[in-house]
Design a protein around this nucleic acid. Structure first.
Lengths: 200, 200
DNA sequence: GTCTATAGATGGATAGAC
DNA sequence: GTCTATCCATCTATAGAC
């Protein structure tokens, strides 16, 4: 079984290419990364990459699609059985932050390199990402309905919250002072206070 | 005098190149944009671009540096004379949101295309961006000191807040239902509630 | 599966006429 | 300032030997 945390620890040549590409796309972007760069990172020659992937575009697609799917499916799984709405939002945000921290390379590539995907490929990734965002907007709506929150604009606020949590993939460091879980707690606390809107 | 809103309305060939490049870098990214693309958008040939800029890298540098400088200097100007800390934070965030909404092309290029800048050029832009972020962290610290806010981690929270407001440049539309000012209000309200932390 | 070699296309930048 | 023409480097992808 492949889980999110496997992403950087697998062992086949295909998965080593996957990981090398994710790292390079993260650092330099898709167009600035060459097939020679990727091959070099893996320790093979550029031509050999084509024994594992049909082309460069396909490497990006697989990284983006797989990562976005794992993000979304993981969120759905985390919410299973949770009925309290604040608890659900907390669980969602913690998962979202932890995933982006622990899979920072692939996660940031998955949405930062969207313009580098072909139209068809981009739509496939966006469809999955939209489902994930919709899941969160539904939670926001439930909170407003059940707890009387006044969310100024559901779309604007949800974009803001998700972006804040997503961006962790830009600065998180495994060897930093904070764990992914601790950061998830901080953001969940901050967001829930903002949503409750006790004063204004 | 050049203000932020002039960015897309100037008339010299140089400024038309500036605007065309910002649009293309925004849509496709620096490396996916060719000098021929930029020239075509302006209505000239690629070779003619070199009468106005020494090269492609320099076009990106000027967009990034000028935009980041205007963002920062505008914030400093907005804060002038404001002593109340909540009012100051509100003013800062409103400016930050409005700037990114009204200069969405150049703003997004300025920090999304940082990896495409040479080491030296990137450091110049980052220095200015860091000054801007530091300004906000100082406000956060003042709020914590003066009003007893409990900010879990100043750096993590400030990154989150700024990212939320910056990302407006990814989805704002001039012809959308919300003005930049309205969005700035929403985020400032949300953030200040989260900072006050009335309940937890 | 790996490699070397290369085809074929494209892009940044320059030269020089106007 | 504009243009056309082109150099030269580089990149993706393929061919074919091992």
């Amino acid at each position: 079984m492949s889980t999110a945390s496997d992403i950087s620890t697998a062992e086949t040549t295909e998965s080593r290419i996957w990981g090398a590409a994710a790292k390079l796309f993260y650092d330099k972007g898709y167009h600035a990364t060459t097939m020679r760069d990727i091959a070099s990172e893996v320790g093979i020659k550029a031509g050999s990459l084509y024994n594992h992937f049909p082309g460069k575009q396909d490497i990006l697609l697989r990284i983006s699609l797989q990562t976005t799917r794992e993000l979304h499916e993981g969120a759905v799984a985390r919410l299973d059985g949770i009925t309290d709405i604040e608890e659900a939002i907390r669980a969602f945000l913690q998962w979202h932050v932890e995933f982006h921290a622990k899979n920072k390379l692939a996660s940031r590539v998955a949405d930062g390199q969207l313009p580098a995907l072909s139209e068809e490929n981009r739509l496939a990734v966006l469809e999955m990402r939209d489902a994930h965002e919709q899941l969160f907007r539904d939670l926001l709506r439930r909170g407003a309905a059940e707890l009387g929150w006044t969310v100024a604009d559901e779309r604007v606020i949800s974009f803001g919250i998700l972006t804040m949590c997503t961006e962790v993939d830009a600065w998180f460091r495994d060897d930093g002072p904070l764990t992914a879980e601790a950061i998830g707690d901080m953001y969940a606390d901050f967001v829930l206070r903002g949503l409750r809107g006790d004063s204004s």
